[in-house]
Design a binder for these strands. Structure first.
Lengths: 194, 194, 194, 194
DNA sequence: GATGAATGAGCTTTCATTCAT
DNA sequence: GATGAATGAAAGCTCATTCAT
């Protein structure tokens, strides 16, 4: 059986994803993990520390992957497509973590929230830099601010948590491809637009 | 001064938007509205009844407008563009309401939640019907499921609540246009895709 | 029957006096007062707010009486004697309140603690002024700092809570007289001291 | 570096003096002492056992010194003066211990509390015997009960913990002399009292 | 219509102590 | 001798809701 802190993080992830941070009692988490409250507070300073742990994992992982993809040798359009696909696939593959991540920033304590915002921003900016690179190279349209485009796309990703059905007809890869295609299509240079 | 129930709804909207439903105490709402708890329970059956009220308003309004736009005489591409623009503009114009709407579905009591899901779905389906109409007419690409496209777009809209700054440099109309343009661009029929 | 807040203050006074602030649970207080915790938190912001209430009452009362006595027309030696006697008698007459007062300053929250220190100091200084008046008039010895004398005397008063037995052989007035006599005797001008 | 139990007692003394027994967590003590909880429970049976240890040290020391002083050859008035001075000086020289001693009797477990009361009483009685000796000899006033006088004086001593400032202008010896002088002065036989 | 005192169940967190290693 | 993970009981506090007035 996994270690106690590991079990706690898993239990918390499942419950936070299902009901939202504020609707989950610490008692439920420790019950699901099969330990007592004292054990939880031995490893985590607070309930929101547990959230912080969940939160950070996915973001760190996605950031690393984005940086690797972005630094690759392929043409920028391909790298952007790969990055878009990747964030969808990893979000779906870690669906509970992702759902927690998508909605729980506001429940972090002030200091951790600041840290997280910094990390999120770094991710956002790395992604935006890809878009800007494509715009500078003339292969992506430049009449829509790159910043706005990134928000536009990540809105779609965050929204996955609200409709995507893990056992359903669409695989992670299919959704990822569609999303990446839509993004790239929307950024093709305009020629004789209305 | 506005009527008591009106003041309560306004106060609740402001507070729910700012802090999230679970982080707002009924006492805060009545304090901000300048009434007492008894008064609130005179007009509303419960805290989540207040949420229900807020919730419904924006959705009803946007649904009506969508139906009007969709039923118009313009070509489908133009109607879709107008609908996309409209949902962004009305969401930004009623920003607090929209933010509450975007993240508080799960706080409704079971029966109201069901009602709401029905209403949301109707909206979603009306929008999807527009996309499907364009696909059938051959003016929008058909290789991405219309359903997925609608989720994709509304993710972007819902995400507005997390980054859009009401007093900032972008007006509602500008964001709306960009979003609508991105949507339409992403749906142009593909010709010689990679 | 007394009002709820009154009953709560009484219950808290009894319990804090008997066991010390930290050893009394809010639950015990409300049980003794015959109400629920919710009721307590309706009237008092916190456990230490209850302490604050108890704390202030005795000090306010003794301060008023001291000021009246000190402002009287009698010779300073008589006024000092009366003041010393009075603080003993009122402390014994409100024995539980006094015991709480004597030991619980450190349990107040920081802001209230500051307030209380100011009030205590004012009391102390009013008393010291009496001693200094006697010294200036040459009727009390001046070779012991007035400040130290006051600490010396109030130590004795505070200590009452640790040995005085309310049902015992000594009445409040008897103890008060003895204490006042000892104080005055210790302050008689020295003539041919060793 | 000192032994583990020694370091624990020192750390506990510092913390109990500063914050009061109930406000200090065992974890804080072991952290300050640089050991672990297990180590503490290896040497001491409980938190209050640690208090007991601190508690006894000062009292044992002061009792020994009192007995030596009281048994000396000097006239009773001088012995009483010396005893009074000594208890002040040793209390100030061991200020943290003294502060713990002055206010933590009630935190001892029942059995140790009884022991302590016995030891305290013995000290008190030895001191009182000095006063009574002086009264019998006619060199101290007899119209105030010796018992009450002792309480009166020790109140002043215990109160030191609440106002005396170790780095301040008054040395231990100065305070001790003043206190002893005040005590002796208050006990001079009365002649022509008002 | 409206008040606000009161409820009661629930919350997160703390902490002295134990015990397998 | 010493560790530190884990317990379990209790703590202070919050809050949506009710109800006599």
């Amino acid at each position: 059986m996994a270690s106690v802190p590991e079990r706690l993080v898993e239990a918390a992830t499942r419950l936070f994803a299902a009901k939202g941070y504020d609707r989950v009692a610490v008692q439920e988490i420790v019950d699901l993990a099969g330990v007592t409250k004292g054990a939880m507070y031995h490893y985590f300073g607070s309930k929101d520390d547990l959230l912080n742990e969940i939160y950070g994992r996915l973001l760190r992982m996605q950031t690393e992957r984005l940086e690797q993809i972005a630094a690759g040798p392929a043409p920028v359009v391909e790298r952007l497509h790969a990055a878009a696909l990747d964030v969808v696939v990893t979000s779906v593959d870690n669906f509970d973590q992702a759902r927690v991540y998508f909605r729980s920033a506001e429940h972090l304590a002030e200091d951790k929230r600041r840290e997280m915002r910094v990390a999120r921003r770094r991710y956002h900016e790395r992604f935006r830099a890809l878009v800007e690179e494509g715009q500078a190279a003339g292969v992506l349209r430049a009449d829509v601010p790159a910043d706005l485009t990134v928000h536009y796309f990540f809105g779609s990703v965050h929204h996955l948590g609200q409709w995507y059905n893990v056992g359903g007809p669409l695989t992670a890869k299919q959704v990822g491809r569609h999303f990446a295609d839509l993004l790239l299509a929307s950024l093709r240079p305009v020629e004789e637009e209305r």
